[in-house]
Each structure stands twice: as C-alpha cells, then as structure tokens.
C-alpha cells in the first residue's frame, strides 16, 4: 500500500528536539577525550608542559665497544636512521659494529641525526670528520646533511637484520613509531618482497603510546603486565586506534583489570601485524625489529599466532635500520676504493 507520507511527517520541521544525557558520567572518560590525545600530540612536538608525565617514551641509550680501536680501522662508516619518534646512529669499523645510540627525534631532522651520532661517539675521540661515508635512512633520511647517500629503511632493515640474526633470516617485521613494515629477504639480506604501512596508527608504536598515555603506564611495563592474565581475553574489536581507545575505556569502566585490557589490546595489535606479514608470506627464520620488538606482550602473541618463534639477537632491535645503513655505507666505500685503485 502507498503511505500518506505528507501526513505522517507533518510537523517534522517545527517540532523541537529534546536532548537528554544518561546521568552517569565516567572519570576515565574525561581523560580519554581530552588530556590523553593532547599530551601525545603536544609531547611529540616537544611542547608539553613539564607537568605532563610522558609515559610513552623509551629511554635514550648508547654503547661503544672499547675493545676496538678506530685508529687501526681501514674503513670507518656510519648509518643514521632518523625515525619519527627516535633516531639511531651506528658506527662500523671495517664492517664490524663499534658504537651505536638511540635518541629521541627532535623537531629538526638534521639536529637529531647529529645528536644521535654524537651520542654514539661520546665516549670515544672519533669525530664526524673522520668518517668518510655516512648513509642516511628512515623517514627523515633526506635531512641528514652529512650523509653521502640515502637508502630506504626497507632495504636497511633487511640488511641490518641479516647482520643481527644471520643469513637464515627470511622474514622481518619492523614495528616503528609511525609505521609497520613486513619484509621478505634473501640470504644476503636483499629485499625480495615488502610491504610498508604508514597510513594508519594501528599496529605501530604510536598506537601503543596512545594506550600507555591513556592508562598512565610506562611503555616498558605494558608488555610484561599484559602477560599477567590467567586467561587470554578476546582482542579489542576495533582496529582503529581512536575507536580502540574508546573501547579500552569502556572495558575498564565495565570492571576489567588493567592487565586484561592490556592483554586484549596487545593481542589486537599482534593480530593486526600478523595479517600484514601474511600478505607477503611468512618464512623461517623470523626476526622482529623496531621499538615494539621490546614489547614482550605483543611479541609473544605474534609468535603464538604464527606458530614460530622470533630469532633473538644480543643487539638492541631498534638499531637494525641504522646498522643496515652503516653496512651499505661500508660496501659503498669499499666499491669506491676499488674504483680508485
């Protein structure tokens, strides 16, 4: 039958709307809506006031192998990886790891590159002028003024992982601050298939930082805490970080303990990145690099979903990109020298 629409919808324009709120208001809800996101974006720019505790930041680090002597080295090369959140520098002597550092990226990429290199060399008398070949990589790679060449982070991570984990490595997962890379490589560390997702924050370090800041838990503690659940909860259903945050607040309000929320969030992130890995195909050996490699809560869950363990390395997983860049620098310098002789 045909309905008499005009009659049914009479007064549509004129009848006022009545608005109500459900009385209950959540304390956590206000954190989620305002300060958390503000603090994250503010802190990234280095403008957050001193009062804000930055739970999401990894500490700065550096190391030098004092048993080596740079003055005896035939070739000194360096790689600088300027990432969105942190920057790393690696210095090699004849292709062997000598010094490295990981520092926070500031607002200027050239300054961050220099800061990383100086941090790596702080306990040595080696200086930038004595390093003939520097390769820049990472998202800020075009802004490393003293780099002779820039190489994509995909190629550098594969090369670095090949050094750190050995020639048997075929699959590399790199979870950086602002992107996630799945790489397949050959026995020489040459990339054969890759995928990089830097469009969406889900599955990146930033996705985890948003949670750390929301719950006010230092980022180093998230992984271990998330493993303290007796039974694994289902993953947070939203992929999108914005919606996952809302969901996490809801779960907390409904009485879930923090560990359970963390477990649910870590599992969602693990499922998310394994989907990316499966797109390029997972083959042993498997290696994880980047900041999230330090989050045992995510790593353990990725291993469980894939049914394979990630190879361990004595070296800090965050330096893979810079290490690869330095290895490229070493090979390029060698090639140059051969060309001259």
């Amino acid at each position: 039958m045909i309905l008499d629409f005009p009659q049914l919808i009479s007064q549509w324009e004129t009848l006022p709307v009545h608005v109500f709120t459900a009385h209950e208001k959540g304390e956590i809800l206000t954190i989620g809506a305002g300060t958390a996101s503000g603090a994250v974006s503010g802190a990234i720019q280095g403008t957050a006031s001193g009062a804000v505790t930055e739970h999401w930041k990894w500490p700065e680090q550096s190391n030098v192998d004092l048993s080596m002597d740079w003055k005896k080295a035939a070739r000194i090369t360096a790689g600088i990886d300027v990432g969105s959140v942190s920057s790393q520098a690696v210095v090699l002597l004849d292709g062997k790891l000598y010094a490295w550092s990981s520092v926070r990226t500031g607002s200027s990429s050239p300054d961050s590159a220099l800061k990383a290199l100086n941090q790596a060399l702080k306990n040595t008398d080696l200086t930038l002028e004595k390093i003939p070949y520097v390769v820049g990589t990472g998202y800020g790679r075009v802004n490393v003024p003293f780099a002779k060449k820039t190489i994509t982070e995909i190629a550098c991570h594969a090369r670095g992982a090949n050094y750190m984990g050995g020639g048997t490595i075929r699959t590399i997962l790199d979870m950086g601050g602002q992107d996630c890379k799945a790489i397949h490589c050959d026995e020489k560390g040459k990339v054969t298939n890759f995928l990089m997702n830097d469009k969406c924050a889900a599955g990146t370090g930033r996705g985890m930082e948003v949670l750390a800041d929301l719950l006010r838990i230092p980022i180093q503690e998230i992984g271990p805490l998330s493993l303290k659940v007796e039974e694994e909860p289902p993953p947070v259903s939203s992929v999108c970080v914005v919606f996952a945050k809302t969901e996490a607040i809801g779960l907390l309000k409904s009485g879930w303990p923090v560990e359970k929320v963390l477990a649910s969030y870590c599992l969602a992130m693990a499922e998310r990145v394994t989907a990316l890995l499966n797109r390029i195909g997972v083959e042993k050996d498997f290696f994880i690099t980047g900041g999230i490699a330090k989050n045992i809560g995510v790593v353990k869950r990725i291993e469980r979903i894939l049914g394979i363990s990630a190879l361990n390395s004595a070296l800090d997983s965050q330096i893979a990109g810079a290490l690869g860049a330095a290895l490229f620098a070493n090979a390029l310098l060698e090639k140059e020298e051969r060309g001259k002789s």
């Binding site: 008499d4 009659q7 919808i9 009479s10 007064q11 009545h18 109500f20 459900a22 209950e24 809801g250």
Partner: peptide
C-alpha cells in the same frame, strides 16, 4: 509517529549501559 504526524523527537547521549540508556530515551 502517528497519523497526526510527528509527536516527539528525542536525542539522548548514552552511558556505557546501552540498553538502559535506550530504555530511558524511549521513555522520554
């Protein structure tokens, strides 16, 4: 709605208990 036209338009911002919020919205 009725054959006389629209007789109420209500908007309610719910809390976490969606079912209870929805009941309240309908009652209003």
């Amino acid at each position: 709605l009725s054959e006389k036209g629209v007789s109420a338009k209500v908007k309610l911002f719910p809390d976490l208990d969606m079912a209870q919020s929805a009941r309240k919205a309908l009652e209003e």
